[in-house]
Design a binder for these strands. Sequence first.
DNA 1: TTCCAAATTGTGAACGTTAACATTGGTTCT
DNA 2: AGAACCAATGTTAACGTTCACAATTTGGAA
Lengths: 328, 328
Amino acid sequence: MADVARLAGVSHQTVSRVLHDNPNVRGETRERVLAAIRQLNYRPNSMARALVTGRSKTIGVVSSDTTFYGPASTLFGIERAAYDAGYAVSVSSLRSVSSRNVVLDAIQQLLDQGVDGVAVIAPLRSGVDALRHVSPDVPVVALEAGQNATVPVATVDQRAGAAAATRHLLSLGHKTVWHLAGPADWQEAEERILGWKTALEAAGAPVPPVLRGDWTARSGYELGEALLDNDNLTAVFVGNDQMALGLLRRLREAGREVPRDISLVGFDDIPEAAYFTPPLTTVRQDFSELGRRCLKLLLSKVEGEEHPGRVVVAPELVVRESTGAARC
Amino acid sequence: MADVARLAGVSHQTVSRVLHDNPNVRGETRERVLAAIRQLNYRPNSMARALVTGRSKTIGVVSSDTTFYGPASTLFGIERAAYDAGYAVSVSSLRSVSSRNVVLDAIQQLLDQGVDGVAVIAPLRSGVDALRHVSPDVPVVALEAGQNATVPVATVDQRAGAAAATRHLLSLGHKTVWHLAGPADWQEAEERILGWKTALEAAGAPVPPVLRGDWTARSGYELGEALLDNDNLTAVFVGNDQMALGLLRRLREAGREVPRDISLVGFDDIPEAAYFTPPLTTVRQDFSELGRRCLKLLLSKVEGEEHPGRVVVAPELVVRESTGAARC
DNA sequence: TTCCAAATTGTGAACGTTAACATTGGTTCT
DNA sequence: AGAACCAATGTTAACGTTCACAATTTGGAA
């Protein structure tokens, strides 16, 4: 910067002013500085800037498992939103969310690293619990966390999605809908159970016991066993598309045809869902929108502005061919 | 830091020395400083440190499409390796790799942001081409780039994987193997074609024309059409698992059974592959290993050390139920 | 004791930027 | 004409580290 100033015959401060589009610079001077910048191929040093301003224009994202479709898409959504807002993104993925300290440590590490704020993709209960221990003045927002979080939350309305899926099946004439849920410590799994149960009760339908999977296709396959024992089974709302895939496979092996014998609804709308056999009816989450809203929330918290404690994105039921009318 | 020094009754430099485990500090002094650090809950400012050392202990990753399984896993692999090496990771995902400037701009932006080095997940030809224009002294390594790159490359041996898949099918008695490839501008797609073709030629089998998909299940489904026209078709090596899924669906619709009528091999081993109908034989890539090797390569380039221009990770054929002996 | 080397600690100046205030010169107003 | 302002620019001091030395203390050997 000193070099640029010297070449342009001005002080470093004037260079700084040109860089910041400060209006109090004569047009001719500005041109001279700009020319010097180009000639020397000068790039501002963001570290020095961050050091003096206390702002790094970087946000941190701590994510549990970036190989799952949901977290990965969420991360991607945040990244795009951040880029558009002129922010860089630093990620920290946890190998396990076992102890609550893991989450807190990751946040602290990101903060030490100089990020302006942190978004925590905390689909697990334990992760949400950890957030209870961050002091309210550190700029942290959570994604996919439940109601009772102490930090601002951006989330897709899981309950509404589950309810829509359940109502869809009921409206096709099914007497009731079984539910193959995700692991108990996943917040989303609980929300989906709640939405499913509420919809069932509202329709006066019996509420079957909840089956627990672990989101993998394998668990969907294995839980198919328990489901098959039951012979008045005609409709299943599955907690995510992968498990639905596993279940689909198990049902086929058992000679049950979808949707003729059994109707299935998944959750997530992974890109492959439209190519399952049969194409899967599922609930789509808009991760781009979620990322945008999350970032907006985070930045307003960084700026210390007024902000809502919770933003909610609506999911969308995508009807394909895995659901059909109940057999009489 | 000044506060810590004051509280411990030493100079700031001594605090710095304690922080760096410098041996020339008396044990008792070290304890006093450590106590002060704890008491004040002091955290070193990484910006200030980076400013003076010129090292930020951060690497950048530019990635094309983090929603595809390959790039996402690669990113995750790098992140883990970086974490273990004490490095933070800053990501920059491109919405499109259309123009070559997009890649260069992303690299420059990361560099401006202060990263020590950049790993480019550049599966597209255009991305690789862009790398030709980065000067050899900027610490950049590419992943999944081809042979003719001018920067160091870490990659999975696509050719070996494709050859293994093809040989597996030939060994089951199939007269030849068709190939459903990825888009022409994807480096990996070309490498897989090359491996497939080489294996075919080595076995003296005829080489059918290459079919081009775009990695999505949809394209696999649609290209099934062209494949079905051909009636001496018994084996297909598909460029990735998603397309295999789509093809699987198309074959089922056409009444062709897998593996009885047609054998299929995919590529990637996505978590769902084991739960396709039937479970998919595929080629697994070890992304953790790739991430580790890539990081090692990048860091040695950052340090200006001696390093190999190219590291290669071996893939692994995973045999499941989508492949069987050719019908006589 | 006396002195030298090693071990320990301290000092001042960087790193590259922005913030706050000071200075200059030219207008405008009275 | 003089004061008072405004626009344009410059000056100095931070920000929180590390680096290169300088200064002090310590422990033995002479």
